[in-house]
Write a protein that binds this DNA or RNA. Structure first.
Length: 880
RNA sequence: GGGCGCGUAGCUCAGCUGGUAGAGCACCUGGUUUACACCCAGGGGGUCGGCGGUUCGAUCCCGUCCGCGCCUACCA
């Protein structure tokens, strides 16, 4: 005796109950020891900074779809969960939190501050996990990892030490992007360009010998304090006579040379460039090439230092103002123009980035990039959509060394110790007690930590126990799929590939799925700082988790962003409700159903829906294999709504009320089979509602859907039966069209007459036609239609719909006229094609043949419509 | 400045290898039929951004222009 379902589905209590039950049953656990084929993924570890956003919801829904799908296919699945310490981001939020209490991290000191961050991590890391679980994700939570876990920290040290030993990690003075607010170096990736409306200042530099002056232009006039040359293009006839002469640096009076360098663009400004090697990336390169002095004019906090002479201790903005004023006063400022350009800002705190000279740890990338590039080129790693591969190639081919040190407190502290005696570095996995170079015990550890992405790059194997040769690693590494956002291809994906190849000898994953970016209704990128965004927890609260998951899945198209407004959720919710109600209908009709009794011969309609289900599930699986999540969702949606509910359930009602016990039982059994099949197929997308319904089906056995598998393929339908069903659908639809166009109410049953040739068809489907098209019992005769009949041509039969009311004649005339217009239009197009000799000659024969058939069909249709119309007009004319 | 992508019904978007355009929502009409008004049945609505080209035939291929977006870049 099946359970009853409530009139309405109430998601929340079901979600919490089921998730707990799944966990208790250990359904997400990856055993590592068994013999089934394996499928593994690592979660892109969310930052412990804050809360889950809609992008996470999308990405993790899609991963969960894959994980559950593979389980239903019989795979041993590991989906490895965890979180990321997110160096700068987390440090910044904790500092902001401290600032509310009027404290800075320096008030606490390093150790205490780091303790504070761990507290933050404990709190928000747990919250993130809760939110992921609310989404229903089936990660193996017993294996949850954090990038600063002891094991992962050991992996980080191991990698650092090995790379250092291989000469791939080195220290160097370099012009880095510096955030004066965070007082740390930023990678290129962490300092995005933003448009700024600046000014272009034209400044006059006088020649020392008094023979004239050169004008240069700059957007950052304060940097002239650090100028050590002015450069011109060697082939520039305006200036090359002056090369080698000296200029008097304005304000400070220093003598600087005029140098030649081809990096100068002769067409920009005056063709002469001031060179500030310590504060501009291009000038730095130029300075290196020419051996120019490098004068650093900045303190790490962004104020000017003593090298700036009278401008010392001003911050950059103040110094600029004063420099400009002083230049102007001395008549050296010869022009100011508006100048819009793009300037790097700190990705985390939006502060203007300053290029600054400093000693940093670097990682040599070119040797690592080569195999990673080849892996994608040769198709061993595939990006989906493929279009991202070009972006990947471009970046990898032009890869630069990676500045890996960060002047932060939160993160993996660099395992390098500096000797006070010999000034050498000792790099070691275990904390050393003395210098390996001179044996001195006067060593102190580097205070810098590693860029967050350093540990993220190891994630696929560090989470599985590397560098130990663990069972987990052997079983689940390399992983199969990585699903992530496209904007971190370089930050993360490329680096995982490089590190994976280098340290494990294997590519860390085969397929990389880049999910679409979610934007708001106006197409803006979601952003916490601008307050643009939708909280997935709100969405789940209002519409239910299944509805959100279904909606997100059906929006996940390859290569296109998603515009998300709350309104699109309605469709998902409606679908959940539809499924629920279909199940309610089934259960109402299964009260006396015995799951163990044998099922006799299934009816035509039963076999049809089983066949349709087979096709739908197969299509959905192909779509999933190709990461076409939207297609998978849509295929199943259409099957459930457009075929199961719209047609099969309506057809089944006939059998269910039938006095033929065998027919009734077959329909009951089919209903159970199809419903369970549909629920299973939808389970990866909508895990909660499907499991909830499945538990009340009469064949429930206490197992969850995930403990079962997809329905077996096979309940085939022969081609002839399929055509028979197509004909039925068309007949019913055509009758409904006539009814609809004449606005007949449901209560009006119309008479329908088929030609004698259709007798067998009518006998087979009489009950269905009556019920679905709301007709009187259909008859078969070849008599001409009565004056008040509407005639439609379907399946080659002239079908008469008796209207029994002269009032409808006018409507019918209008309907036929419209019909005639349509047929004539189609006829014209088809005829034109066939009249074209080159079409008949050159088009594929089967296409020509199809056109010919279409032509004759249309001609017959036209004849019938026309004849009918004439008759009606005559009849109408005769009456009035 | 380069590279990539997008522009299809009022809205949000599907349309794999070229053969007379689809869905959901919205809109209009009619509906309490053994689940579902978050529903059922029917309907209207598109020169597939513009212009050229290839082809018997182009939303789909090529060129170009217009309008968006993303990535990337050393014009100070």
């Amino acid at each position: 005796m099946p359970a009853e379902l409530d009139k309405r589905f109430d998601p929340k209590p079901v979600e919490t109950r089921l998730y707990r039950a799944w966990m208790e049953r250990g359904l997400f656990r990856a055993p590592a020891g068994d013999t089934r084929p394996r499928f593994s993924m690592v979660i892109p570890p969310p930052n412990v900074t804050g809360a889950l956003h809609l992008g996470h919801a999308l990405n993790n829904t899609l991963q969960d779809v894959l994980a559950r799908h593979k389980r239903l296919l019989g795979f041993d699945v590991l989906w490895m969960p965890g979180t990321d310490h997110a160096g700068i981001s987390t440090q910044v939020v904790v500092e902001k939190d401290l600032a509310k209490r009027g404290l800075t991290r320096h008030d606490l000191g390093r150790e205490q501050f780091v303790d504070q961050v761990w507290e933050w991590k404990a709190k928000y890391g747990a919250r993130i996990v809760e939110q992921l679980q609310a989404l229903g994700v089936s990660c193996d939570w017993e294996r949850e990892r954090f990038t600063m876990d002891p094991g992962l920290s050991r992996a980080v040290r191991e990698v650092f030490v090995r790379l250092h030993r291989e000469g791939l990690i080195y220290r160097s003075e370099y012009l880095v992007s510096w955030c004066p607010r965070c007082t740390t170096v930023l990678s290129d990736l962490e300092s995005p360009y933003k448009p700024v409306n600046g000014k272009l200042y034209k400044i006059k530099y006088a020649l020392v010998d008094g023979s004239g002056a050169i004008e240069v232009e700059t957007t950052r006039p304060e940097t002239l304090l650090g100028d050590t040359a002015v450069a011109v293009h060697p082939d520039d006839e305006r200036w090359n006579a002056l090369i080698g002469k000296s200029l008097r640096l304005p304000l400070l009076g220093r003598e600087i040379p005029i140098v030649a360098d081809t990096f100068v663009d002769r067409d920009f400004g005056t063709g002469a460039v001031k060179v500030t090697p310590a504060h501009d990336p291009h000038d730095f390169e130029c300075g290196r090439r020419l051996g120019l002095a490098m004068i650093n004019i900045l303190h790490p906090d962004g104020r000017l230092n003593d090298a700036a002479g009278p401008y010392a201790n001003l911050d950059v903005a103040e110094a600029r103002k004063k420099v400009v004023a002083d230049l102007d006063a001395q008549g050296l400022l010869t022009g100011v123009t508006e100048h819009a350009h793009e300037v790097p800002h700190c990705d985390r705190c939006d502060t203007l980035v300053q290029p600054l000279l400093s000693e940093q740890w670097f990682m040599r990338m070119a040797p690592l990039a080569a195999p990673a590039l080849a892996a994608v080129r040769e198709g061993h790693v595939r990006l989906h959509p493929k279009s991202w591969e070009n972006t990947y190639y471009h970046w990898m081919e032009n890869i630069r060394d990676w500045a890996i040190s960060r002047q932060l407190w939160w993160g993996h502290r660099i395992p390098a110790w500096k000797c006070a005696a010999c000034d050498e570095w000792t790099v070691a996995i275990e904390d050393p007690t003395q210098c390996t170079h001179c044996g001195s015990t006067e060593i102190t550890q580097e205070s810098d930590v590693l860029d967050t992405w350093f540990s993220s790059a190891l994630w696929p194997f560090s989470t599985m126990g590397w560098p130990d040769d663990t069972e987990t690693l052997r079983a689940y590494y390399p992983t199969n799929v990585l699903s992530t956002a496209a904007d971190i291809i370089f930050f993360w994906v490329a680096r995982m590939i490089m590190m994976g190849v280098h340290f494990t000898g294997s590519l860390p994953f085969r397929d990389v799925y880049l999910h679409p970016l979610i934007r708001d209704e106006q197409g803006r990128k979601f952003s916490k700082s601008k307050g643009i965004g939708i909280d997935p927890l709100d969405v789940m609260g209002i519409y239910g988790t299944d509805a959100m998951r279904f909606t997100l899945t059906s929006l996940a198209v390859q290569g296109r962003d998603i515009r998300f407004g709350m309104q699109v959720m309605e469709g998902g919710r409606a679908f959940v409700t539809k499924l629920w109600n279909a199940a309610r209908f089934a259960l109402m009709n299964l009260a006396d159903y015995d799951a163990n009794a044998s099922v006799g011969e299934r009816g035509l309609y039963d076999r049809w829906i089983l066949h349709r289900m087979d096709v739908a599930i197969a299509d959905a699986h192909v779509a999933l294999d190709e990461f076409r999540f939207n297609d998978a969702a849509q295929t199943l949606y259409h099957f459930v709504w457009g075929e199961l509910c719209d047609w099969y359930i309506e057809l089944a009602k006939i059998a269910l009320q039938s006095s033929d016990e065998a027919q009734r039982r077959a329909a009951q059994a089919t209903l159970v089979t199809v419903l369970r099949g549909a629920l299973t197929a939808l389970h990866p997308i909508m895990p909660f509602v499907t499991d909830e319904i499945a538990a009340s089906l009469p064949d429930a056995d206490g197992r969850f859907l995930m403990e079962r598998s997809y329905p077996e393929r096979g309940a085939g339908l022969d081609a002839e039966s399929a055509r028979d069903l197509d004909a039925l659908v068309e007949v019913v639809t055509r009758i409904r069209q006539v009814r609809g166009e004449l606005d007949l109410p449901q209560s009006t049953l119309v008479g329908v007459a088929f030609p004698i040739a259709a007798t067998a068809f009518v006998q087979r489907h009489s009950a269905a036609i009556r019920a679905l098209a709301r007709t009187a019992p259909p008859t078969c005769s070849d008599e001409p239609p009565s004056p008040t009949a509407s005639v439609v041509l379907v399946q080659g039969w002239s079908l008469r719909v008796e209207l029994d009311d002269p009032r409808f004649v006018a409507d019918e005339v209008r309907r036929l006229e419209k019909e005639l217009l349509r047929v004539d239009k189609d006829l014209a197009i088809t005829a034109k094609k066939l009249d074209n000799p080159s079409f008949v000659e050159r088009a594929k024969p089967e296409v020509v043949q199809a056109e010919r058939e279409k032509l004759s069909q249309l001609q017959a249709e036209r004849g019938s419509v026309h004849e009918r119309l004439e008759k009606l007009r005559r009849a109408a004319g005769g009456e009035t």
